[in-house]
Simulated scan of single mutants.
Amino acid sequence: MKKFIISIMSSLVLILSFGLQANAATPVKIPVLMYHRIEVNANKNDTWQISLNEFKQEMNYLKSNGYTTLTNDQFYNIITKKAPMPAKPILLTFDGATSDFYYNAYPILKQYGFNSTEFVVTDQIGTSWGSPSDMIRIMTEEQLKTVAKNKVELENHSTTHGHIANLGTTELTRRVAGATNKLQSMTNKPVGYFAYPFGESSPNFVNVLKNLKVKMAFKVGGGLATDSSDLMNMPRIGIVNTDNITTFIRKIKTGY
């Protein structure tokens, strides 16, 4: 009987060991998508505006094909090999917190139960600018609080947008910390992730983020995210107005 029990236990150990080795051997490759504006009638002259119909097709594809939309912590833990990777992981990010997210993208994300991230420029909350034909409106604090209760993570895009990568340490610290404090006070949730305005970083910027305990920062471009990607310059795949469902599928599979 003892020999039988020992044999069973040995078999279990071998099975578990094989599973862990297989997981460790699985290459980590995750598409991180970057959206900006989702409009009913997208301006074809604006690279970062895509149509609501196109967005619906893309989200339906992810749902129909079994993709798992990640939270930032899940993504971080997979990238750093602290957690196993699901079969089809993906991270959905949006920059700028424009109101079209609230009215157009958010209902689709909520319908499918998707996780997503909105990188917020905090000094712009509730403001608007532009021409009457193309007015840019930023979500109000109440709208941001609403989406934050429904699987949308609000993360740091600085207090102000602009080409800020080469500002001094004191000013960068003020802008990053200011945005973190604002978002945390709004949501009562930790803020630990950052998206560089215009995707522009610098060695000093990276040091500022590390000193402020930012866990991960995202740039623009670079293909699929892997476990060898730089945590403070994580790649993102831009979804633009020349994309269609065919190019979308290619991008999430290849990164380009």
Rank of each mutant, 00 (worst) to 15 (best):
T127C: 04
G199W: 00
P235S: 05
K3E: 14
Y35K: 07
I245Y: 05
K210R: 15
G178N: 08
F114L: 08
I78E: 00
K81R: 15
V191T: 09
K210Q: 15
I90V: 14
L209D: 02
G221H: 09
M216Y: 03
I6H: 12
V208C: 08
R137L: 06
P89K: 05
L91A: 06
G223H: 02
K145T: 03
Y103W: 04
N241Q: 11
N211F: 05
Q49G: 04
E39G: 01
T69W: 05
N188G: 15
T68K: 13
G126M: 08
S51T: 13
N244T: 11
I79S: 00
L16K: 10
Y196L: 08
V32W: 01
F205Y: 15
P84G: 10
V40K: 14
V28F: 08
I108P: 00
R250K: 14
G96T: 03
M34Y: 02
L144A: 03
G126T: 09
P203E: 12
L52S: 10
T169R: 13
H161N: 13
D123Q: 12
T160L: 12
K253W: 01
Y61L: 09
M59R: 04
L20G: 10
T247R: 05
A148C: 10
G221A: 08
G178M: 11
T173W: 00
E200C: 03
K219H: 06
P235F: 05
V32P: 00
D123N: 13
F75I: 07
I245T: 13
N77V: 00
P27E: 10
G178F: 07
K63H: 15
L144F: 00
D227E: 14
N72T: 04
S99N: 11
F75K: 05
A148H: 09
V121S: 08
A217Q: 04
L92G: 01
K149S: 09
N23K: 11
H36F: 07
S51N: 13
K189I: 05
L154D: 03
T71Y: 04
I237C: 02
E200K: 11
H163S: 13
E141I: 11
F194C: 04
G96K: 01
I125G: 02
T127I: 06
A179H: 02
W48Y: 15
K56R: 14
H157D: 11
F194D: 02
F55Q: 02
G130E: 06
Y196K: 04
A87F: 09
M216F: 06
K44A: 12
T170Q: 12
T170I: 15
V121L: 07
N241C: 12
R174Y: 15
F18W: 15
K215I: 07
I50H: 02
T98K: 03
K189E: 13
S64H: 10
I252H: 00
L20D: 02
H163Y: 13
A42C: 10
I125M: 07
N77Y: 06
A148S: 14
A83Q: 14
S228Q: 14
N53K: 13
T169L: 11
N45I: 08
N77P: 02
D95V: 01
K2E: 14
V191H: 05
D95T: 03
